[in-house]
Simulated assay, not measured.
Amino acid sequence: MRALSIAATGMNAQQTNLEVIANNIANINTTGYKRARAEFTDLLYQSERALGAPARGGQNNVPEGAYVGLGVRTAAVRHLHQQGSLAQTTNKLDVAINGRGWFQITGPDGQTLYTRDGAFNKNDQGQIVTLDGYEVQPAMTVPQDATDITINESGEVYATVAGQVAPQLIGQLSMASFVNDAGLEPQGGNLYKQTESSGDPVTGVPGDAGFGKIHQGYLENSNVDAVKEITQLIAAQRAYEMNSKVIQTVDAMYGTVANNMR
């Protein structure tokens, strides 16, 4: 019976769905995390009676055919890049993007990676880096005798140096945007990599057309909605149980056939 394999594809799909939901819930407090959603498509169909086949007698065509689907498959796990809420931290090197855009980061092998996580810090040389120590692009270094750091909405970074009245401009944060944010490949560590699906990055200054503004002393929260995730978790569980029930029913029907053949 095809129902056995069809139900098995349904259970596999709901297992993937459950894993995606579990990852969303696990990252509910991850800075800049974008929730994901599993998307599915139906599999091929087997034709028992073709559409437009001649009716009995050959006078007319049948109005409907008989096509039996073979199940479901996972088509994509889409990351939904909606804006998360901003949380105030008062940390001078915490910055959040309000609007479109990505911070550019120099990855471990020198390639450019992208993130919405603006929880930056200084390393032992005063360079502004991520929490994992990756350098923020463009590179900038905070003077050792700096007493304060100010980052305006346009991404200009100023350092107040002891003995100087006017703040000193030490760098300019730039951002990148993509035609298709969903095409970025997640790398872990709140980092994403450019792919052919995302398109080439377009760089600009915060506040320019098509780019968000920078807010110093804030971080962008995860855009995971706990209530929605729990609701989808229950729905996935019910769907898994229904597919499991189909397998139990098919097994019982096989048992009936086997008993009748004895």
Results as ranks from 00 to 15, higher is better:
residue 3 A to M: 11
residue 4 L to A: 08
residue 5 S to H: 05
residue 7 A to C: 02
residue 9 T to F: 03
residue 12 N to Q: 05
residue 16 T to V: 09
residue 17 N to I: 10
residue 19 E to A: 14
residue 19 E to H: 08
residue 24 N to A: 01
residue 30 T to H: 07
residue 34 K to T: 12
residue 36 A to S: 15
residue 36 A to N: 10
residue 42 D to I: 14
residue 45 Y to L: 03
residue 48 E to A: 15
residue 50 A to E: 10
residue 54 P to G: 11
residue 56 R to G: 14
residue 61 N to W: 05
residue 62 V to K: 10
residue 71 G to S: 06
residue 74 T to N: 11
residue 79 H to Y: 14
residue 82 Q to D: 12
residue 88 Q to I: 00
residue 92 K to P: 09
residue 94 D to R: 08
residue 94 D to A: 12
residue 98 N to L: 13
residue 100 R to S: 11
residue 106 T to C: 00
residue 106 T to W: 01
residue 110 G to T: 03
residue 111 Q to K: 04
residue 112 T to L: 09
residue 114 Y to R: 07
residue 115 T to Y: 03
residue 119 A to T: 10
residue 120 F to A: 02
residue 121 N to W: 10
residue 121 N to E: 09
residue 123 N to K: 11
residue 126 G to N: 10
residue 127 Q to Y: 06
residue 128 I to D: 01
residue 142 V to N: 05
residue 147 T to R: 11
residue 152 N to S: 09
residue 153 E to H: 10
residue 154 S to Q: 11
residue 155 G to H: 00
residue 156 E to G: 03
residue 158 Y to V: 00
residue 160 T to I: 02
residue 163 G to E: 12
residue 165 V to E: 13
residue 167 P to Y: 02
residue 167 P to E: 13
residue 177 S to Q: 12
residue 180 N to L: 03
residue 180 N to T: 08
residue 185 E to Y: 06
residue 190 N to F: 07
residue 192 Y to E: 09
residue 193 K to G: 05
residue 197 S to P: 02
residue 197 S to M: 03
residue 197 S to L: 06
residue 202 V to A: 11
residue 209 A to C: 01
residue 211 F to I: 00
residue 213 K to R: 13
residue 213 K to Q: 08
residue 220 E to P: 04
residue 221 N to G: 03
residue 222 S to G: 04
residue 223 N to I: 06
residue 226 A to L: 11
residue 228 K to A: 11
residue 233 L to D: 10
residue 237 Q to K: 11
residue 241 E to G: 02
residue 242 M to N: 01
residue 243 N to H: 13
residue 245 K to A: 15
residue 247 I to D: 08
residue 251 D to H: 09
residue 252 A to W: 05
residue 255 G to Q: 12
residue 255 G to N: 15
residue 256 T to F: 10
residue 258 A to W: 06
residue 259 N to Q: 13
residue 261 M to Q: 07
